[in-house]
């Protein structure tokens, strides 16, 4: 850890101005990940620009029929917000299955998107890691990789994105609102996070001088048929080995629309248009779910310790789609999987 400057941003424009003047500065909101990384000597920002006081704390309905979530809304507030609980319960459940109450109280909506991987090697500065030190090599590929990715990996990196919330946001096709020196723009959720490729040090397509201001949810919330199932090594307070967000629109027992996203398996929440298309017009039965799972897991590759994730993900997808179809979403408090 090295000493750093601390400054508060007064408003979004001020935040953008401040970060532009110092390329090694970082924004800090809840700090639930960044502060750990600084302590571990993985991050060493020269300056922390505190954006936690920016007036981005509202959850408002949009004229388009969706919901706009301020980037500084704490995870807890978002999960329990009536608009979210009623219209986007998938998002609520995904948030509540992550971290602990105390962490969710601190963590911001925008920050949740920007949390870094939990790959062991990323946190251990005594080992090579391309994400931490580009060009040093990936220790996980031949190492302790039980928690690592099976999809969208590269020879440079097999890290996963650890968020639960983002898996739901991907399934709901949220839009990320960002602001930068060139003005405001929006990024479709699918385009927000990147695959590692040759630049695993870059997790997202957010430019270094840009700031997330809001997340917008489209009108469709799939509140009748959804489920978020998180499989992990203990029943709470652990990152996902595999998680599944499933959302269906049904006509009787025929699928009219389907959304399916995986967490814990790739450098970003994992979706496939082919998998979702394969469900359209199908009856809600295990055979259809299995076919969708196969599409979604197409090209999956294990690295030894994490080989089991492929089969686990397949079964978890089938189970989650079943829960969604039956209208019996996975409970966060009752750890039994139904």
């Amino acid at each position: 850890m090295i000493p750093f400057q601390y400054a508060r941003a007064n408003d979004v424009a001020d935040a953008i101005k401040q970060i532009a003047t110092d390329p090694s500065a970082k924004f800090i909101a809840g700090g639930t990940n960044l502060i750990d990384l600084i302590k571990y000597d993985v991050e060493g920002p020269s300056r922390l620009i505190d954006i936690s006081h920016l007036p981005l704390r509202s959850v408002e309905p949009t004229s388009a029929g969706g919901v706009l979530i301020g980037a500084m809304v704490p995870n807890t507030d978002l999960a329990y917000h009536p608009l979210i609980e009623q219209r986007y319960p998938l998002l609520s459940r995904a948030i509540l299955s992550g971290a602990s109450q105390q962490l969710r109280n601190m963590a911001s909506t925008g920050g949740n998107l920007l949390q870094r991987t939990r790959c062991f090697y990323y946190y251990d500065t005594a080992t090579p890691c391309n994400k931490r030190e580009p060009g040093s090599g990936c220790s996980a590929i031949d190492g302790v990789n039980r928690i690592n990715a099976i999809l969208g990996t590269s020879e440079a990196c097999i890290a996963t994105h650890p968020s639960d919330m983002c898996v739901a946001l991907a399934a709901l096709e949220a839009t990320v609102h960002v602001a930068g020196p060139a003005g405001a723009r929006t990024i479709a959720f699918a385009d927000f996070h990147r695959l590692p490729g040759n630049t695993p040090q870059r997790d997202t397509n957010l430019e270094p001088d840009e700031i997330i201001t809001a997340i917008e949810l489209p009108p469709k919330g799939f509140s009748a048929n959804y489920s978020y199932l998180k499989i992990r090594d203990r029943l709470s307070y652990a990152f996902a080995l595999v998680s599944v967000a499933a959302a269906l629109e049904l006509d009787g027992d025929t699928i009219k629309e389907a959304r399916l996203a995986l967490g814990g398996v790739a450098h970003k929440p994992w979706r496939s248009t082919a998998a979702e298309a394969a469900l359209l017009g199908q009856r809600t039965d295990a055979a259809a779910f299995a076919k969708a799972a196969d599409w979604l897991l197409h090209g999956a590759k294990g690295y030894g310790h994490n080989n089991f994730k492929i089969g686990l993900a397949r079964r978890a997808i089938i189970r989650t789609l079943g829960q969604a179809a039956r209208g019996t979403p996975q409970s966060n408090s009752d750890k039994k999987i139904r």
């Binding site: 039980r146 499989i231 090594d233 080995l241 294990g302 080989n307 089991f308 994730k309 492929i310 089969g311 686990l312 397949r314 079964r315």
Partner: peptide, 9 residues
């Protein structure tokens, strides 16, 4: 752990 319980692949 669960991966020792079930033959997943």
């Amino acid at each position: 752990t669960l991966d020792k319980m079930v033959q997943f692949n």
